[in-house]
Design a binder for these strands. Structure first.
Lengths: 146, 146
DNA sequence: TAAGTTTATGCAAATCTTTGCAACTACGAA
DNA sequence: TTCGTAGTTGCAAAGATTTGCATAAACTTA
């Protein structure tokens, strides 16, 4: 089965309608390396679907997030970016607030924490969408010795 | 010592210049109940400093965050909101992605997790600025039994 | 206290994101 | 297959946030 078809099926299973826009946006995100911005999704997807609107990209991305199919990465200041959830390698992000560099944290580490918070609060944490901010090792050292 | 004066001193200690704008914005955030938006800070602060510009509010808030003096709360969709860090009651936030309601999690719970991630990654986590997304108890139950 | 350096501010414009509404379309039921 | 309904989309406009640049103010040093 093609990649797009499998994704569309997932979408359908989760109660979302399968439209050309959603399928193509999903494939665009899937095929791009790394996390891409709404603008990049828009440009990429529009090659295959010329009438596509940027607002649709934003709305679709919001739905896909709700369906648990994409990761969102909010880096301070810069626009939001997205990537397809990879079941083989689930992870959250660490963004350095000084240099903007991005690191990944294995899901297992996050999971233990998420479960602890869930116990305390009866909340269900979307650990998949977690973005942590802080200082990377290099910026941390720079700040310690100015 | 007045509230504003103490805050200004903190600002100075951390290497930030003390300006009328920063002092008043800080006091405005301090005196408002709950978390308030940039727009609200702007309106509140402008009563005391008529020439104030909204861009300055955004830049100031960014600095104050860097100085670790305010909490930022990013609720999906809605504009960013801020509150003064309260050393007596440090906490992070849980935002329900369905109904938007906000819950607090004690810092201790977050701290243990932050330290674990720090061990693994050599990153320093700003656990103070953490916003977790998920489903609150009520929305979770609604979704389980449709 | 005055001069020099560095950082912050205001303004205007750009960029990013959300929203209201009418037209359209996917999909379950008949 | 056709119909009806509810969910989606495009468009345009509003709202939120960031940025570049010239001016102004804060802090450091002499």
């Amino acid at each position: 089965m093609s990649c797009g078809k499998r994704l569309a099926e997932q979408l359908h299973e989760r109660g979302y309608r399968v439209t050309a826009q959603r399928t193509i946006i999903l494939e665009t995100i899937a095929h791009m390396e790394d996390h891409i911005s709404a603008q990049q999704v828009y440009e990429g997807a529009r090659e295959r679907l010329p009438g596509l609107n940027l607002a649709t990209v934003y709305r679709t991305v919001e739905s896909l997030k709700g369906a648990g199919m994409i990761n969102m990465l909010s880096t301070g200041g810069e626009p939001m970016r997205f990537s397809l959830c990879d079941p083989e390698h689930p992870h959250s992000h660490l963004v350095c607030r000084e240099c903007g560099s991005i690191f990944e944290v294995e899901a297992e580490e996050i999971e233990a924490f998420a479960r602890r918070v869930e116990e305390i609060t009866s909340f269900r944490i979307d650990s998949v969408h977690l973005t942590l901010e802080g200082l990377c090792q290099i910026c941390k050292q720079k700040q310690a010795a100015p």
